[in-house]
Write a protein that binds this DNA or RNA. Structure first.
Lengths: 202, 202
DNA sequence: TTGTGTATATTCACTGGTCAGTATACATGG
DNA sequence: CCATGTATACTGACCAGTGAATATACACAA
């Protein structure tokens, strides 16, 4: 775990993750990555075929941790499914207030590579978003909601929208609106439940 | 209106709009803009101080037409406010299916300039989104909805989310989910209306 | 009418810098 | 001696912005 034990490729990817997320793909040169990783550019090119390759590695590295973050927010919030999903947006609002926050790296990368739909990083971005959507779908299915796929897509729209809008205005308040919207949408999608006294807590 | 009568600055901005929207800011060189406008680069720099200047002009040019597009979709759809707003997403879905569609130029530009919050193009992007939000706010106020500002922000989130998600997956189906979500959110925000027989048509 | 000045508009050729990627050589361990 | 890995120094392309000169147009004086 200590930096000295990390292998060279690991250190390179770590440097790439930090720089690409903080400044964007095109804004970061391979020289900059090499320097941040404490390696020569030649060494970098020994371990990664091209910049595109490294960009793909950047997103692939972030896929699991980002999904895990959502899941942690969900699990860590009290209440029913709606509250728990709203909790994701509330945590996102907190994160968006912190200095280094720059929105969603997957979305931002996909914008920079918009004319390269076959780029491995684009595929990684689509895969990540689909994984989030599928996780939400599972959550809603488990909660007995009648239209889980559609609801999952609606929540994904709110997620991506709050990333984009919050990044533009640099105002986490939009995340709170997204939380409210999520609550409304999920409550509206309640199952034709056997009208219990209270919505079941999940 | 014929190309020959357009002034040189007009032709330059038109070329910039096409190229910047189609390929992004950083991907388009000033040489490319000059060539597309049928002008020397030196002429281009005679009329625009810098690339940043031209990028700002690009977004300022698109502000009014884009808003007008939303308003046209709204006005052109039958039904109550909810239906009319949903009509925007339906029209957007049609547009997203067309070949040259590349999402929202304001959002994409703001992503490319994420580390230059004071950039004039960033200001133009924020202004545009705020104008859309304020227009929606007015629409909801006029419809007697009780929480117009909050609802307007929620719809903006769905708009930006559907731009981002549809661009990533290149699948206009997400726009339809956004339309559904908008319907749900607006209907849920109904006024504590004096329970008329039918929701008033606006 | 003609000449001259001045502001606008345009051109060609160039600079200084950046960047992705490479040629070549050197080291080190099995 | 060969595979793996690292370093120095380079190439070729691109790109934002510029220098210097030129063309056009109109104003106004002789």
């Amino acid at each position: 775990m200590s930096p000295s034990t990390a292998s060279t490729p690991e250190r390179i990817v770590k440097a790439a993750v930090k720089l690409f997320y903080a400044e964007g793909i095109r804004a970061v040169s391979m020289d900059a990555v090499a320097q941040k990783a404490g390696v020569t550019k030649r060494t970098l090119y020994y371990h990664f075929e091209s910049k595109d390759d490294l960009v793909a590695a950047y997103l692939q590295t972030r896929d699991q941790p980002n999904l895990a973050f959502f899941q942690r927010c969900f699990a860590g919030t009290q209440g029913d499914v709606a509250d728990k999903v709203a909790g994701i947006f509330r945590e996102l609002a907190r994160a968006a207030g912190r200095p280094g926050w720059k929105g969603c790296g997957f979305l931002r990368t996909s914008v920079e590579l918009v004319n390269m739909p076959g780029h491995p990083a684009m595929k990684a971005a689509r895969l990540h978003k689909r994984r989030v959507e599928e996780w939400l779908d599972g959550v809603f299915k488990a909660a007995g909601i009648s239209t889980p796929e559609s609801l999952a897509r609606q929540i994904v729209l709110l997620l991506d929208g709050s990333f984009a809008t919050t990044l533009l205005h640099r105002d986490p308040a939009y995340m709170e609106d997204a939380a409210e919207a999520a609550l409304t949408l999920i409550r509206a999608a309640r199952p034709p439940a056997k009208a219990g006294l209270k919505p079941r807590r999940f």
